[in-house]
């Protein structure tokens, strides 16, 4: 019990509950099924990307290309589903994962093989992936995604499919982080890279797999996005990478590496969805969002860094004889 209370996730969860409570008192429509469903469904693509981002951040890396990777996948899927006779739910899903695997593998290779700051590489590849789809589509929207495709994003028996997808992804990611050698290596690399080397963790392989997995999830997020929206705007979802980062950081993932959890990120995603919805409900313009998220990121990072600096300075102290 004490352990649960100590976790940052718990605090964030409590704040989330309070927020929900306040909003439902302010406006009864907040608690309506439709509203909650909308909040959750709209958060799914970012949520899926945030799951991958969590793993990346735990290794002390970052991936600012996730939104571009997602749109890369979404655009090709939309085109494929409209034009190919082979298009069906299975092939589309496979293509989504393949596309995500390609973009993720490119990121992972460049970062792991050359040890270049990940933010620089992913900034570059973000612009490449986005550039490719923009050049191909000339920036035009792709409308009228086939019915069978959008059916995959609908609600059945009051259960929205996208939410199911998100839950599956969260469970898989949490399982990987908790129960696989790779998952534990992620924590090891982020916690103490040198020590990880001493216990035989293959650092480069771990880092490659991290970005590969993040790419895979982005590919899948593109699939979900198409299914939900029914159209695809190649230049869309700009800046969503920041939302994914913010969700993970709000949920307690340390941007300096070493700690974080999927459950925390889920809470973070929900929190962001609620804030967004709350602003609408409270008639506060949505542009306040970015300011709030920016402040939250700055504040949590500052806190983490100060804590680390304090621990470091304590470590360097020596024991002094009390009497001369």
């Amino acid at each position: 019990m004490k352990k649960i209370l100590e976790k940052r996730e718990t605090g964030v969860f409590l704040i989330l509950l309070l927020l929900c409570l306040g909003l439902s008192l302010y406006s009864p429509s907040f608690l309506s099924y439709t509203n909650i469903k909308n909040v959750l469904v709209n958060s799914v693509p970012v949520g899926i990307m945030a799951a991958g981002m969590t793993i990346v951040l735990i290794t002390a890396g970052i991936d600012v290309s996730v939104a571009s990777q997602m749109m890369f996948s979404a655009t090709w899927l939309a085109i494929f589903s409209q034009n190919s006779s082979m298009a069906n739910p299975v092939t589309v899903l496979i293509l989504a994962l393949v596309l995500g695997a390609i973009t993720g593998a490119i990121n992972g290779f460049l970062i792991a093989a050359f040890s270049i700051p990940p933010i620089i590489i992913t900034l570059g590849t973000a612009s490449i992936y986005r550039g490719i789809i923009l050049v191909y589509t000339n920036g035009r929207w792709i409308m009228n995604i086939p019915k069978w495709f959008t059916a995959l994003g609908k609600t059945y028996y009051n259960i929205p499919l996208p939410i199911i997808y998100a839950i599956i992804i969260f469970l898989i990611t949490a399982w990987i982080l908790r129960h696989t050698y790779f998952g534990r290596s992620v924590y090891a690399v982020g916690g103490n890279e040198n020590a990880a080397r001493y216990v035989g963790v293959n650092i480069k392989k771990t880092i490659f797999l991290t970005y590969f997995y993040s790419g895979l999830l982005c590919g899948f997020a593109g699939f979900v996005l198409d299914a939900i929206l029914g159209n695809c705007q190649p230049s869309g979802s700009n800046g969503w990478e920041m939302n994914a980062i913010a969700a993970a950081v709000i949920g307690g993932t340390n941007i300096l590496g070493g700690s974080g959890s999927v459950i925390g990120t889920v809470i973070g995603v929900a929190m962001m969805g609620v804030i967004e919805n709350g602003l609408v409900v409270a008639h506060i313009p949505t542009y306040w969002q970015k300011l709030v998220y920016g402040l939250i990121i700055i504040a949590t990072v500052t806190f983490d860094v100060l804590r680390r600096n304090y621990a470091d300075s304590k470590k360097q102290m020596i024991e002094i004889d009390q009497e001369a």
Partner: peptide
């Protein structure tokens, strides 16, 4: 990265 978002906000 944090201030980027903040300034935009």
């Amino acid at each position: 990265l944090g201030t980027q978002m903040f300034f935009l906000g």
